[in-house]
Design a protein around this nucleic acid. Structure first.
Lengths: 139, 139
DNA sequence: CTGCGTGCAAAGTATTTGCAAACCG
DNA sequence: CGGTTTGCAAATACTTTGCACGCAG
């Protein structure tokens, strides 16, 4: 996925083996991962790698738009691949509660600067959970 | 606020002095608090009280609809008073980044069971940050 | 009375930081 | 080469759990 590499370079970040591997891992699975899971998967592929490095890389990749961090109330954090970076600047995501598959949800009506209940809107978090088409069938 | 007391009783929970105090604290300020902040405020009013108890009470009060827990990416959790419990089952909240004041945002277009990008929607998180009318003036 | 609620102490766990060595560009 | 990036070790900090006592209903 050249686009991810572009995003990384454009942000002035280096394209290291671990970062490439992290991107591959997310590309090969449609579901979100915790830092710990990412570490395990990276280790299976290229040996030792430290958890702090994973945290830093996930944050770096989220910062340049390759990944995004999911909102939620659990203790752990989750990241997922933003599969159409730059396509629609204004989309959100829905996660399948059964298989974890992440899809885009377009058509958000909220945008920065608009008025909302007397407030000037700065940012917003929108995130969905549901059951994907596949998991609805295989029920 | 009798409504809060109702919600607590309806949930089969007891109306203890600490719970009353927590509700008062949230009623007297329009902004969200962390568990630690709530503990400090409760201690100022009625002396010693443990942090674990605060955690349990905040969760209990959120569970019966008196408070709600904010979504976010920070390390700390925040709770705020749901000032119109039961009014509109489908509203979200906007928080002022300057003063922390929380307001309701009505008119959510998403509801459980609807189809969204091929998924059957189960739940969603929607939350806003902005600048409230007051803070826009006093700039 | 009876069971929920509370405080305390301690454990559990996710996340962050500092630093020297390794490495991308 | 120079500034990032990485791994390790250790520190932080938030949150949870277990338990005995106390209190609301």
């Amino acid at each position: 996925m050249y686009k991810a590499y572009q995003l990384i370079r454009n942000a002035g970040l280096k394209l290291t083996p671990i970062r490439k591997e992290i991107i591959l891992i997310f590309e090969e699975s449609p579901r979100p991962f915790t830092p710990r899971e990412v570490q395990n998967l990276v280790q299976k592929r290229i040996g030792r790698c430290g958890l702090p490095g994973i945290y830093r890389n996930l944050e770096a990749l989220a910062g340049c738009g390759v990944l995004f961090r999911l909102a939620g109330f659990g203790r752990e954090r989750f990241y997922a691949l933003c599969r159409e970076p730059g396509t629609d600047p204004h989309h959100h995501h829905i996660v399948c509660v059964s298989c974890g598959k992440v899809a885009h949800v377009d058509g958000c009506r909220y945008h920065e600067g608009m008025m909302l209940g007397g407030y000037r809107l700065l940012s917003h978090i929108v995130q969905f959970e549901g059951v994907c088409a596949n998991c609805q069938e295989n029920n």
